[in-house]
Computed example of a mutant assay.
Amino acid sequence: MANIRDLTGQRFTRLEVLRLVKQDKHYNLYWLCKCDCGVEKIIGGSGLKSGATKSCGCLNRELSRKRKTNLTHGYSNKERLYWTWKGMKARCYNKNNKRYQHYGGKGVTVCDDWKHDYQKFRRWALDNHYEDNLTIDRIDNNGSYCPENCRWATSKEQANNQSRNRILEYQGKKMTMSQWADYLGITYGTMNSRIQRKWSMERIVNTPIRGHLIVN
């Protein structure tokens, strides 16, 4: 014991060393320490001197609670973007989600960076012009959620990009039903009704609305 550096009375962050407890066969020293929170615990000397052990464990618990508090109260209760992130993951991984069959059920996933870290997703969103009136849209509907395949779009823009949206062509123009409705100045409901009644595109385009010809 003559060559042992006595740590008794020394402080290491939240820990005060009370006394040496034992030395194992590998000459590792273990000290009884009292934490600022009042807990006494035997801790290895190497952990104390290297700074790896700063408390009885209470410091890590406090930091963990703080991180969870920041996420819960700083984002989930206030930021629409947080719920966008949660919804994106639910569609891809929660089989009980009503939209799972169109996402996770078809192999759509969320990249690892976004799946496990809301902060990374949040930084990407804010760097890419996120606004509360926009929704996340996959550029390639067969691809997954990742920075290279996502953008922020209005609900109408996203609807036009959905794989299930029907593309209609007339005189060289190719547009979705929603885009044709806007182009013709009619409601989506009217457009859909005409499609369901099996109208030709020529008839849809040239049938007047309330006495007015839609387009030339």
Rank of each mutant, 00 (worst) to 15 (best):
P208E: 12
K115Y: 05
G47H: 00
I167P: 01
R19I: 09
M191P: 05
F12S: 11
V205W: 13
L63T: 06
E202N: 11
L29F: 01
N70C: 08
K120V: 02
F121E: 00
H212F: 15
N161F: 12
R164C: 14
S50H: 02
S55R: 10
Y118H: 08
D113F: 14
K89M: 13
N70Q: 10
L32K: 05
V39G: 00
D36G: 13
G104A: 05
K54L: 12
K95R: 14
L63S: 09
Q10I: 06
S144F: 04
R65H: 13
S55C: 07
K49Y: 03
N128D: 07
E202A: 11
Y75W: 00
G104P: 04
W152L: 10
D132N: 13
C150D: 13
G9V: 02
E62T: 09
L29G: 01
L168C: 15
A2I: 14
K89F: 12
R14P: 01
A90T: 11
T187I: 03
V17F: 15
R197M: 03
Q171Y: 00
K41I: 13
G211A: 11
H129C: 08
Y145V: 06
K66Y: 12
G105W: 10
R210H: 09
L213G: 00
Q119I: 12
V108A: 04
N96P: 04
M191I: 05
T84C: 12
H116D: 11
Q158N: 12
E79L: 11
R210Y: 05
V215G: 01
D137F: 00
V110E: 01
N165T: 11
Q10N: 12
D113N: 08
W124F: 15
K115P: 01
Q119A: 09
R80Y: 07
L32S: 07
R122K: 10
C33F: 10
F12N: 14
Y27H: 15
C146E: 15
G87L: 01
I167G: 05
A52G: 04
D127R: 09
T8Y: 08
L184E: 01
Y100E: 04
